[in-house]
Amino acid sequence: MLTVGELLRQWRQRRGISQLDLAIAADVSARHVSLVETGKSRPSADMILRLAEQLHVPLRDRNRLLLAAGFAPRYPERPLGDTALSAARDAVRRVLRAHEPYPALVFDRRWNIVMTNRAVRPFFARVDPELLRPPVNLVRLGLDPRGFAPMVANLADVRAVFRNRIGRQLAAAPDPELTALYEELLAPEPGDGPRIETDVVIPMILRVDGRELRLFSTITTFGTPMDITLDEVAIESYYPADEESAAYFTKP
Rank of each mutant, 00 (worst) to 15 (best):
207 R>I: 10
180 A>S: 11
227 D>G: 03
170 L>P: 01
205 I>L: 15
171 A>E: 14
202 I>T: 07
205 I>D: 14
234 A>L: 12
231 D>K: 06
149 A>H: 07
136 V>N: 08
221 T>P: 02
237 S>P: 00
177 E>L: 11
204 M>D: 08
124 F>V: 12
194 P>W: 03
181 L>A: 05
189 E>I: 06
219 I>C: 14
223 G>T: 13
126 R>V: 10
229 T>N: 08
184 E>P: 04
194 P>A: 12
217 S>P: 01
155 L>W: 00
123 F>Y: 15
142 G>S: 15
159 R>N: 03
151 M>W: 13
217 S>E: 00
164 N>T: 04
203 P>N: 06
128 D>K: 10
181 L>T: 11
234 A>D: 09
137 N>H: 03
232 E>S: 12
230 L>A: 06
145 P>K: 05
179 T>Y: 03
166 I>N: 02
150 P>H: 09
236 E>I: 06
141 L>Q: 04
208 V>R: 12
159 R>H: 05
220 T>F: 08
218 T>R: 04
183 E>M: 07
213 L>D: 01
214 R>I: 09
182 Y>W: 10
217 S>T: 05
227 D>Q: 06
132 L>F: 07
162 F>E: 05
194 P>G: 06
159 R>Q: 09
217 S>F: 02
145 P>I: 11
171 A>G: 10
193 G>A: 06
202 I>N: 00
158 V>M: 09
150 P>T: 12
182 Y>V: 09
159 R>V: 05
193 G>I: 03
162 F>R: 04
176 P>V: 11
149 A>S: 11
164 N>S: 13
191 G>Y: 00
190 P>Q: 09
141 L>S: 02
172 A>Y: 05
158 V>A: 10
